[in-house]
Write a protein that binds this DNA or RNA. Structure first.
Lengths: 191, 191
DNA sequence: CTCCTATTAGTACCTAGTGCTAGTAGCGGG
DNA sequence: CCCGCTACTAGCACTAGGTACTAATAGGAG
C-alpha cells in the first residue's frame, strides 16, 4: 500500500537530509508518485532544488576552508585570541566524545581542545608540544560545554609555556601546563 | 592591452582555483573575450563546468563528514594486553593526523593512543584519567608507525599509575605518566 | 451533487552549460 | 597577392534539473 501525503513528506525530508544529492526524478521513482508531486512536496516543506542544495554544501566547505587557513585544525571553536598572550575556545561534548558506558568525556578530547588552543596561541611558523602536565579534576558529561582559557605564562627564545584551564559552568574540569617549542624564524605579520 | 592566449589561460586556471564558483559568462567579461573562448580554454585545460566543480567540492565535504565521526573508542590497535599489568598498541600516522604545513603528528593523537591504552589496561568498570605528565621527545612524521608500550607502575585502593613509552622504530617519541582513577566495584570480565 | 484535497499532465521558460558548424581577423610564407 | 594557420567569435540544437503556471482528473465528505 502507498504512503499518505504526510508519511511521504516526512520520509522525503529524511531522505533528502541523508542523501542531499538526489533528483526529483529519483525521488518520484522511489515513492511511486509523479515528479510534480515531489515538487509540490518540496515546496510545502520549503526544500530547495538539487542544485541549490549542492551549492549550499559546497559553499559551507569553502567558507570553512577559508576560515580554517590561519586558525587551522582546531578542536573546539576559538572564540577569542590574542597571539602570544591568551585565548578562549569552546567545545561541546557530543555522543562521539564520551565513553559509551558512563557518558563521561574521554580525556583525550579535553587534551585535544587545550593543546589545539595552545598551538593556536603561538605566533610562529612551527609550534610543537614538548611537555605537558595535566590534571583532570572533574569528569565532564555528555552535553556539557567546555570553555578552555589559555594564558601564556612564560616565554624565552625557543620555548613558550601556556597554561590552560577548562571549565564547565563555574567548575574547573581540566588544568594543563604546556611547554611549547617554537621555530626560530618568526613571521611578524599575521592575521 | 589584452593578454595572450597563454597568459589568459594561466590566469584563468588561477582564477578558477581561487573562486571555483564563477561562471563562463563572468569569466568572459573579466577577460574581455567571448564566452566561447572561455569554453575553448576550459577544454584545453580540461577544467570541468561550473556545476561539476561545485558538485566535486560538495561531495568532498560529504565524505569528510562521514569520515570525521569515528575518532572513536580506542585510538590505535591494541595488539597485546595483560590487565592491570602491561599492554602494547600500534598507531599508524596518516594524513588526517598531521599538521598540514609540516606533516608532523599533532600531539593529541599521541596522547590519545597512550591514554586509550592506559584506560584499556585498567580492569575496572570506571577508569578515568586524573593526572598526566607528558614529554613529546621527538617529532613524529606522517607515515610513521608508533608503538606504545604501557606498564602499571603503582597501584593502591583507587589509583593506578601507568607509564607509557611510545616509539617509532627504536626512537622514543613520547613518554607519559598517567594517574588513573578506578571505581571500587570490579566486574572482572572486560574487553 | 457539489466542494475539497491530492495528484497528475503539460506548457513555457530558466541557467549553465555541451557539441557542432561556420565565419572572420591578422599574420607569415611562398 | 593569395594560401594556410591560429585565435577568436557567432549561432543553433540540445541537455539536465529545475521554476511557475494552468488545467484536468479521481475520490471522498458533507
Amino acid at each position: 500500500m502507498k504512503l499518505t501525503k504526510k508519511e511521504r513528506q516526512h520520509t522525503l525530508q529524511q531522505t533528502i537530509a541523508d542523501t542531499p544529492f538526489v533528483t526529483d526524478d529519483d525521488l518520484a521513482k522511489r515513492f511511486g508518485v509523479s515528479v510534480q508531486t515531489i515538487r509540490l512536496d518540496r515546496m510545502e516543506l520549503s526544500i530547495p532544488e538539487l542544485r541549490e542544495r549542492i551549492k549550499t554544501v559546497a559553499e559551507q566547505t569553502f567558507e570553512d576552508e577559508v576560515r580554517s587557513l590561519p586558525i587551522d585544525e582546531v578542536i573546539g571553536e576559538i572564540i577569542d585570541i590574542e597571539l602570544d598572550k591568551s585565548g578562549i575556545s569552546i567545545f561541546d561534548v557530543r555522543e562521539e566524545h564520551v565513553f559509551q558506558r558512563n557518558k563521561i568525556t574521554r580525556g583525550h578530547h579535553l587534551f585535544a581542545q587545550a593543546n589545539s588552543l595552545a598551538v593556536a596561541l603561538i605566533n610562529d611558523e612551527l609550534a610543537l608540544t614538548a611537555r605537558a602536565n595535566l590534571i583532570f579534576s572533574n569528569p565532564v558529561q555528555m552535553g556539557d560545554r567546555v570553555i578552555a582559557k589559555a594564558k601564556v605564562s612564560h616565554r624565552d627564545k625557543h620555548r613558550t609555556t601556556v597554561e590552560v584551564m577548562s571549565y564547565v559552568e563555574k567548575t574547573l574540569v581540566f588544568k594543563g601546563e604546556f611547554e611549547m617549542y617554537r621555530s626560530t624564524f618568526q613571521l611578524g605579520e599575521e592575521n
